[in-house]
């Protein structure tokens, strides 16, 4: 093949020798991190997510979800509680992974988000265990903790092969049985080049998509109707900058806890959780 190593004729600014036309205030291209975000949020990411319903299977079985209206309320509630907590954990994990990967600690501006988290005061492995303990304290149900760790372990295994990074390695070492999924997601997001906001968005989004898909499969709902519900959810409302790990959101969802524990005790089930 002739031409440049990249193959097809290139039309982007970099190849034409032009400066990137659009940049955010940070100096990063506006598309920075988006490819990583798309890959991480895609349900086709081979990390085991397809087998988790986030309580939706049990809710369908007991009749708590029987149609699109119930499902909409289920998803909204899930996003406002578990989704908010997941987003905060992912945000914090991504930010800490960024801080650890920054070679020069002095270059962090005082008061900037990067200098805030507990990441600064501890070595990475201690910090990961601390953040993981903060996740544990927010998940009262053992069934949900197990599902979260399983998904986290599977994601780390997958992510470290796709986006090898020091932070993923230290996380895997620090929490051998698997860190909670949002933490794994935040660290994977950093490895994939995402910002903490993008990591939080991926966590918020994946906190509801598994349940939505499960309901489509289990109840035969119209997938377009369900995707409209997903499109209307207020993801932005659960994403915020985080500073203090002990003060991260801790919104509980007692019904999800009950569903998770009942699900584990139900004989006939298609989903892991």
């Amino acid at each position: 093949m002739d031409g440049p190593a990249t193959g097809a004729p290139a039309v982007n600014g970099a190849t034409l020798g032009l400066p990137p036309t659009q940049t955010a205030a940070s100096g990063m291209p506006l598309t920075h991190g988006l490819a990583g975000l798309l890959l991480l949020a895609d349900s086709r990411l081979p990390a085991g997510g397809h087998a988790h319903s986030g309580g939706a299977e049990e809710a369908c079985r007991t009749g708590a979800i029987s149609g699109p209206e119930d499902l909409a309320r289920f998803l909204r509630g899930r996003l406002a509680t578990a989704g908010r907590v997941a987003a905060a954990l992912a945000w914090s994990a991504c930010e800490a992974a960024q801080a650890f990967s920054r070679p020069d600690k002095e270059s962090r501006e005082p008061g900037s988000p990067a200098s805030s988290g507990q990441a600064r005061v501890a070595d990475p492995e201690t910090a990961w265990r601390l953040l993981d303990a903060e996740a544990d304290a927010r998940i009262a149900s053992p069934a949900q903790r197990l599902a979260g760790r399983t998904q986290g372990r599977l994601l780390i295994r997958t992510a470290r092969r796709i986006w090898p990074s020091t932070a993923l390695e230290t996380l895997a070492r620090a929490v051998p049985d698997g860190a909670h999924h949002p933490i794994a997601l935040g660290v994977a997001a950093q490895a994939a080049g995402c910002t903490p906001d993008q990591a939080a968005m991926a966590a918020a989004y994946t906190s509801v998509t598994g349940a939505a898909t499960a309901a489509v499969r289990l109840l035969g709902l119209d997938p377009v109707t369900v995707h409209r519900l997903l499109a209307e959810l207020p993801y932005d409302s659960v994403i915020a900058e985080q500073h203090d790990w002990s003060a991260l959101p801790a919104h509980a969802a007692p019904a999800l806890d009950l569903l998770a524990e009942q699900h584990l005790r139900t004989e006939v089930r298609l989903f892991v959780s």
């Binding site: 990411l45 081979p46 085991g48 499969r217 089930r269 989903f271």
Partner: peptide
């Protein structure tokens, strides 16, 4: 035993993570 979330094919072909685990 691995649960496959309605998609036994997915679990052995497209997303093998749970089986590998």
């Amino acid at each position: 035993a691995v649960q496959t979330g309605c998609c036994p094919h997915t679990a052995i072909r497209d997303d093998i993570a749970a089986n590998v685990d």
